[in-house]
Simulated assay, not measured.
Amino acid sequence: MSVDDPEVFAAHRVATCRGVDDARRVLGEAFLPVEFPTAGTSGRLGLELNALSTGRLTLGYMRFDRAVRIRTSEPDNYHVDIPTAGRAALCAAGGRPVEATRRSAAVFMPGRPVDLDCGDGFAQVALMIPCAEVQREIESLLESTSLAPVEFDPELDLTAGGQLVLQAVRVVDEASRHVDAVLQHPLAVRHLERSLVQALLFSQGHNHSEALRAPVPAAGAGAVSQAVDLLRDDPARDWSVADLAAATATSVRSLQEGFRASLDTTPTAYLRRLRLERVRDDLVAAAPGGANVTAVSARWGFTHHGRFAAAYAARFGERPSDTLRASTGR
């Protein structure tokens, strides 16, 4: 996906509407209640809506066939609106307007209704992230359970830090095209969710950004060694760095620094390497007709087939399909 793609999450079409009532209903069911202040109740309004839920997060794509004004109810969640075509003026209650284009997106807080004044042919990717998910990640990163709720800056620069968010959306979009693989595996789905929330926390300014940038001391060799043992003993577990830090009685950022100092890598990269090895083991052991590369890689948490294949080839000197073909005689 790129910011100017014509359609995102195309395999997950929810509705094609031709009237205001239908548009109001489907947007309310997928995201939150909305009104169209300048349209009559029986007015014509073309809307194409794609949407999918990963379990915790909701991601969607919507395209309108004409200029439209939308007013939302008070949201319970964080919302990120990323334009892919056209322009819109977006403004949350009590906040400053954001001119949404292909270079800038908008981030909206819970509890504040939003007005969207969308021009002709406007289309956007819409992300809905529960408050609990954002709070869980920031508390994990900063190792505190008494943090104030995250207050994001309203405008997300898609030419700078916002690229991290776009990259995370691209991965989910790619995964959504394979309905029989990645999104069917809980480990892979949880990885996608965390990646997207962390991308937003690290790329967009908020009231905890300075704390995230603060330097931390590295963990000792003992904690790193213990973490390595845990990962090697159970690479299939849905490990987060916070889990490893808790298990080794150190902090998240200290453990990350310890891995860099001792192993020149990160806990996440080390776990990825172990899982690549397990994928190779499964491919080598596969019976004819009993496995395919996409399913095996997704089972071990790899959510983007192209990046997985490149990482596999860099690690083992051959494509995963070559390994499977050699082991099964196909």
Results as ranks from 00 to 15, higher is better:
155 E>C: 10
16 T>A: 12
290 G>N: 11
83 P>C: 06
59 L>Y: 09
125 V>Y: 02
148 A>M: 06
274 L>P: 06
117 D>Q: 08
18 R>D: 13
233 D>N: 15
40 G>V: 04
306 G>Y: 12
57 L>C: 00
62 M>H: 02
73 S>Q: 12
238 D>E: 14
222 G>C: 05
78 Y>V: 05
300 W>V: 05
244 L>V: 03
31 F>G: 02
254 S>I: 05
183 L>R: 02
28 G>V: 03
234 D>N: 14
148 A>Y: 12
144 S>T: 00
178 H>P: 02
249 A>T: 11
166 L>Q: 13
77 N>V: 05
224 V>D: 00
251 S>I: 05
196 L>N: 03
260 R>G: 00
146 S>N: 12
273 R>P: 05
151 E>F: 13
15 A>M: 11
23 A>H: 00
261 A>M: 07
60 G>M: 04
7 E>F: 09
169 V>F: 06
152 F>G: 07
162 G>H: 05
194 R>Y: 01
323 T>A: 14
280 R>N: 15
298 A>G: 08
104 S>K: 09
315 R>K: 13
266 T>C: 12
111 G>F: 14
281 D>M: 06
20 V>K: 00
35 E>C: 05
300 W>G: 01
68 V>D: 04
235 P>R: 01
99 E>W: 05
194 R>Q: 04
182 V>E: 05
299 R>A: 05
29 E>D: 14
209 S>D: 02
203 S>R: 01
278 R>A: 02
85 A>L: 08
133 E>A: 15
33 P>T: 06
323 T>K: 01
327 S>G: 13
56 R>A: 07
105 A>G: 15
217 P>F: 07
322 D>F: 03
196 L>I: 08
85 A>T: 08
78 Y>P: 03
328 T>N: 13
65 D>Y: 02
274 L>V: 01
83 P>Y: 09
230 L>S: 06
29 E>Y: 09
248 T>C: 14
7 E>C: 13
45 L>V: 05
108 F>R: 12
118 C>D: 07
295 A>T: 13
233 D>S: 15
74 E>I: 10
28 G>Q: 05
290 G>Y: 06
139 E>Q: 14
92 A>S: 15
135 Q>N: 10
322 D>E: 15
281 D>I: 00
187 L>H: 10
17 C>M: 08
293 V>P: 08
143 E>K: 06
244 L>I: 00
316 F>E: 08
199 A>F: 03
295 A>P: 09
318 E>P: 11
18 R>S: 14
271 L>T: 01
264 D>F: 11
191 H>Y: 07
267 P>C: 13
197 V>D: 07
25 R>D: 08
269 A>R: 01
97 P>M: 13
93 A>H: 11
